[in-house]
């Protein structure tokens, strides 16, 4: 087995061990979307009427509509949290261990990204299992078909998080940056309302939602859960992943904080 692969396995194992050791993190990741599903959706259900638009072929409940968006919410929050762990590693010194491993730095960064995406996807599946217990189910094959969509969206959002973390000099600043990204990205998307509903309120809002790559990630998951594919969503998400990853690799100088404090 070559070094690149063993490094990937080692980093994924470490992130998984850390994740399973932090039960509160799993709980927090589930509570957020569950509040939306059980509390907000119950209220919005009466207020919002949903027409039959792809991928739907019949009327669905609002709870069913927001499940893909809430999966996206999990991926979004965890993507940002994974990049926060990168900043933490830099602050705590464990980043030095990574950087002195005989593996290219771009690959180490990619390993961190993949490990974060694996954890995101695991959380999304736990959420889907809870949804099933609540009565929101999909065809068994949909759960398998959703995997690539969930994983690609998780990678795209994780890459965005790493790109953002490369601009942050201090851990304290990162929380602020996350808030400025997470909330607009989530609310200005199709996660909570369909785009035609947005257009009824404002065409500009709809256009903003359309250029938001998170919208395309959520739609990709939504279509996959109904065993359908919209290639535009895949293309936009892939392009966004390439751009964010490029920015992350270009902007990320992991030694920056390790060394600057010595100056």
């Amino acid at each position: 087995m070559n070094n690149a692969l063993t490094a990937l396995i080692a980093i994924c194992q470490r992130e998984l061990l850390r994740f399973f050791g932090q039960r509160a993190r799993m709980l927090a990741a589930l509570v957020r979307p569950l509040i939306w599903l059980l509390v907000f959706a119950a209220g919005f259900r009466a207020a919002l009427g949903l027409s039959i638009t792809p991928p739907y072929e019949t009327y669905i409940t609002y709870e069913s509509y927001i499940v893909p968006g809430l999966c996206g919410m999990i991926l979004l929050f965890n993507g940002m949290q994974s990049s926060l762990s990168l900043v933490m590693d830099r602050e705590m010194g464990t980043m030095r261990l990574l950087l002195t491993a005989p593996v290219p730095r771009w690959w180490l960064l990619s390993c961190k990204l993949i490990a974060g995406a694996v954890i995101s996807v695991l959380q999304a599946y736990v959420f889907l299992a809870v949804c099933a217990m609540y009565g929101i189910t999909f065809a068994p094959v949909s759960y398998i078909l959703a995997l690539p969509a969930l994983f690609l969206t998780a990678l795209m959002l994780g890459a965005l998080g790493i790109a953002l973390s490369s601009t942050v000099k201090q851990l304290e600043n990162f929380a602020g940056v996350m808030n400025f990204v997470i909330f607009p990205m989530f609310f200005l998307s199709s996660a909570l309302y369909p785009l035609w509903k947005m257009a009824e309120a404002s065409a500009l809002l709809r256009d903003i939602c359309l250029v938001n790559p998170f919208t395309h990630g959520v739609e990709m998951i939504r279509f996959a859960l109904y065993q359908k594919v919209d290639w535009i969503n895949w293309a936009v998400t892939l392009v966004a992943l390439a751009v964010f990853l490029g920015l992350a690799l270009w902007g990320y100088n992991p030694a920056k904080r390790l060394i600057s404090r010595k100056v």
Partner: peptide
């Protein structure tokens, strides 16, 4: 540069993986 949340053994195995030992 230790991962304080991991055991001694897991810290060793993590390092081993980074150096291509599995």
């Amino acid at each position: 540069t230790l991962d304080l949340d991991l055991t001694v053994w897991r810290n060793m195995l993590y390092f081993a993986g980074l150096h291509g030992i599995v």
